[in-house]
Structure formats: C-alpha cells, structure tokens
C-alpha cells in the first residue's frame, strides 16, 4: 500500500465504517479502492483481510470503526 501513499506507513482519516474509510483513502490516494476492491464490487477482495483494532472485519465495507480505531489491510491467511 505504501506505493500509493508516498511511502507513508500510517494515514489518518475520519470515517465511521470501512466503506467511508476506503472512499476517503481513494480520494486522497487515487487507486486505493481499486487495490482493495474487485471491479464494480462494493466489497473488499477475498484475498485481503481487514483488521480493526485487532479484530477481523466480518461485514466488509459496512464494518463500523471507532474514532480512534486502527485499521490494517493485510493478505488473507489460510491455516492448516
């Protein structure tokens, strides 16, 4: 993701859910949404996991985030 954010590791945005967060990131860093979401789909790609304050977002774009939440976008991992 850092190649979209000029190398910045952390970005602060005002959002109440993941959908808003992605929209704001895309407005500031064009291409963000395309990186996270499949074409014309309003959901996070299945090979990307979204973690909010250490928990996994289960409702994709609708998942709520709090004022001081920390959100990570990570490769989805499968276990054995």
């Amino acid at each position: 993701m850092r190649n979209l954010t000029d190398g910045r590791e952390q970005i602060e945005v005002d959002a109440t859910n993941i959908g808003e967060l992605v929209a704001q990131l895309d407005a500031r860093f064009p291409g963000f949404r395309a990186r996270l979401c499949a074409d014309n789909e309003d959901r996070i790609r299945p090979n990307i996991a979204v973690m909010i304050d250490g928990r996994t977002a289960r409702k994709s774009m609708g998942e709520q985030v709090a004022e001081a939440s920390e959100v990570h976008f990570l490769p989805a991992i499968s276990g054995g």
């Binding site: 499949a38 790609r45 299945p46 090979n47 989805a76 499968s78 276990g79």
Partner: peptide, 9 residues
C-alpha cells in the same frame, strides 16, 4: 475468480 472458501482463498 478468487473465492473465499472460509479457510482458504
């Protein structure tokens, strides 16, 4: 098509 099969993508 990438699919999420619960435990595996």
């Amino acid at each position: 098509k990438i699919a999420d099969l619960g435990e595996a993508v």
